[in-house]
């Protein structure tokens, strides 16, 4: 009886969060230079899916705006948010460190580094470079996180301060090398691209990129959910987890690999968007508890809604000018990070 109640509770929470996410997305697609009413959006979408046949009360341009510009962008935002929040949960669980975040521990910078290198390679075949960027981003993310992890480890533990310092140092180094290489390349026009990449903003044109990245992110989150009960066991530390039958080395690689994959997938659509992986899992943990089996999917949905709204702010606040998305998340996230660091100073010393 109790199990069913618990299971139903979990499902209910996720359904509710899913509904909130859909609502946020609906609001986000309806707002812009040309407002489209939510009702019209629903009718257009149902028509497009072939479910219904409402006679169009909207101009054809509205359809183009919705399906070619806004919807891809909003879906990309949701995917980026879900991926970064899930990666945050994975890294925090594995490092047993509630301050870990793909941006803070250098994974995002690694992904950006890999992606930019791939973009600069003189490969003109479109489909090749298209596949190369995400792969390079993944390798960059994995390389950076392994480096930070090994640098930050002190006697089998990953203390918060050494993790933050290692993450900062690696991020700074990778960014510096990046700018150096761009300067070397003698293509100053790249600087502007890289600059906006580092500031973070959702950049997708049409559906092509989403069709490739979405399965990666959704698959990654589903796979991460299967790791959830082992992440719970890893909360006891490597030794404690081993006593519970966990193959610690294998799990760590799986978690780092998945976290890097999710980060790289997000970075390839948005550049560096910080603090999502920190703020979202923290807030969710506070409300719903620490059990990763609920924390992970709930954080993914909340993260998605968070970035959908943040991106809405980014493109409407100073319209027609656009604020980089990374600026919005940092303005919200950085003070929160500092607050956590101060408040939990004692708790986080282990």
């Amino acid at each position: 009886m109790f199990t069913r109640l618990k299971k139903n509770r979990r499902l209910l929470i996720l359904v509710a969060l899913g509904a909130i996410l859909l609502l946020c997305m609906l609001i986000a697609v309806s707002i812009g230079a040309v407002p489209i009413s939510p009702l019209t959006i629903i009718e257009m979408t149902l028509n497009k899916m072939g479910i219904s046949h409402f006679s169009p009360t909207w101009p054809p341009s509205a359809e183009t705006i919705l399906f070619q510009i806004r919807l891809p962008r909003v879906i990309a935002s949701a995917l980026v948010g879900a991926a970064l929040a899930s990666a945050g949960v994975l890294f925090q669980g594995m490092l047993r460190n509630p301050m870990a975040d793909p941006y803070i521990i250098g994974t995002s910078a690694g992904a950006a580094f890999g992606a930019t290198i791939a973009m600069m390679l003189p490969i003109s075949i479109v489909f090749l470079s298209f596949g190369l960027v995400p792969i390079a981003a993944f390798l960059g993310a994995l390389g950076a996180v392994l480096l930070v992890y090994n640098l930050a480890r002190v006697g089998g533990k990953t203390p918060i301060v050494s993790m933050l310092l290692a993450g900062f140092a690696i991020s700074a180094m990778l960014t510096a090398i990046l700018f150096f290489m761009v300067t070397l390349s003698g293509r100053p026009e790249l600087l502007q691209n890289i600059y906006s990449f580092l500031m973070g903003s959702i950049s997708v044109s049409g559906w092509n990129q989403i069709i490739i990245i979405a399965p990666l992110i959704i698959g990654g989150i589903v796979a991460a959910r299967f790791l959830a009960s082992r992440l719970n066991a890893l909360s006891l530390g490597e030794e404690g987890a081993a006593y519970l039958g966990i193959n610690v080395e294998r799990e760590k690689l799986l978690v780092l690999g998945l976290g890097s994959l999710l980060t790289a997938a997000a970075v390839s659509m948005s550049g560096l968007v910080g603090f999502v992986g920190l703020v979202v899992p923290h807030a969710v943990r506070l409300v719903l508890g620490a059990d990763h089996r609920l924390l992970l999917p709930a954080s993914a949905l909340t993260g998605a809604a968070f970035i959908v709204l943040a991106d809405l702010l980014a493109r409407t606040l100073l319209a027609p000018r656009e604020i980089p998305l990374g600026v919005i998340t940092a303005i919200i996230g950085a003070p929160f990070f500092i607050y956590l660091l101060r408040r939990h100073r004692r708790e986080y010393a282990f």
Binding site: R96, N97, P98, N232, A233, S235, L236, G237, G240, L244, R285, G289, A290, D291, Y348, F350
Partner: peptide
């Protein structure tokens, strides 16, 4: 054991 996250007692025993 040190426990970095706020698990309750039942959740810990469930591990």
């Amino acid at each position: 054991f040190s426990m970095p996250f706020a698990f309750n007692l039942r959740e810990v025993v469930l591990l």
